[in-house]
Amino acid sequence: MIWQLDIVILVLVVICAIAAISVKDLLGSAVLLGAYSFLMCLLWTGMGAVDVAFTEAAVGAGISTAFFIAAIYQTTRRTRD
């Protein structure tokens, strides 16, 4: 894999991971986690692990983001306590 592209994707992965746990909005956090999954999918495709990348794209970015958003619909904007 081209090492310049590798470094760019790795920096974006770290930025997405830190942003996903530090952002206050739950919906934004779920979307950032989906972006993190897609970047990891790119990284694994570059390493040649196409099967792992396929699973990450189908489960990590697709299904689990839908699950998170369905769970966020059950929450309210502000805490009760």
Binding site: V50, D51, A53, F54, T55, A58, V59, G62, I63, A66
Partner: peptide, 21 residues
Amino acid sequence: SPGGGFQGGCILAASFILMAV
């Protein structure tokens, strides 16, 4: 080729999730 039961099942479920949304 890359793929299999788990990934295919997830994509099949994603089509139903798309219909539900």
